[in-house]
């Protein structure tokens, strides 16, 4: 019961804070929680790890072995082609693996110009968030949303083309709706959801 009350208090405070904060980076308040780590802090920390892993794989593994040393190819069909998985695939595989092991959070990669249409913004928060990070380069988007009867703290972070490998691969892909990405462009968003 005590736990329930605490949870309700957190949800209430989170709701109030986010309403007042207006859901953007400058205004979003840090939501207190019994453990001292707010959902926003948790999401930010998760993003830091995700972004670091993603950038490291892209530059230290993929770009080096494929583009510079030309030792191996990278391919969307990496198993069939005996190649390295693409960074976005690595990201999704890890996200699915995390989903199998934990229900404390989930994350995914979405874009207004997805190669697979299933990854375009779907929920109201995703649509609003993707627009926000496109319109406000470098900024983050936070919102609460209720999906399937569960309320989530949803954070959306810009997914930036860190290397020419990202932009050229998307530009050349026959299923890509956009073909003029440049290094530094926001290509989509990383969505992190934490159930409240």
């Amino acid at each position: 019961m005590k736990h329930l009350k605490t949870k309700l208090a957190v949800i209430g405070l989170a709701g109030i804070s986010l309403t007042l904060a207006g859901c953007n980076e400058e205004k979003a308040a840090v939501i207190p929680s019994p453990s001292g780590v707010s959902p926003q802090k948790m999401a930010d920390a998760l993003f830091t790890v995700m972004e670091a892993d993603r950038a490291t794989y892209t530059s230290k593994v993929l770009k080096r072995l494929v583009k510079e040393e030309k030792l191996i190819k990278a391919s969307e069909h990496w198993k069939d082609d005996k190649a390295l998985p693409l960074p976005a695939q690595m990201f999704r595989m890890a996200s699915e693996r995390a989903a199998e092991n934990s229900s404390d959070f989930s994350y995914s990669l979405i874009s207004a110009w997805p190669i697979n249409k299933q990854n375009e913004p779907k929920t109201a928060a995703e649509k609003e968030g993707v627009k926000f990070i496109e319109d406000n380069p470098g900024k983050r988007f936070y919102k609460e949303e209720t999906l399937g009867g569960t309320t989530y703290f949803t954070a959306i972070y810009p997914d930036v083309a860190v290397s020419s490998a990202c932009s050229s691969c998307h530009n050349d892909h026959k299923d890509s709706p956009k073909t003029d990405f440049k290094v530094g462009d926001t290509m989509g968003g990383i969505v992190i959801r934490i159930p409240l």
Binding site: S95, E96, R97, A99, E100, S103, S106, S108, I110, K122, T123, E126, L147, G148, G149, T150, Y152, V191, R193, P195
Partner: peptide, 10 residues
Amino acid sequence: RKFTDPRNAD
């Protein structure tokens, strides 16, 4: 694992 993502709740 693709369907446990909350974005697929609908």
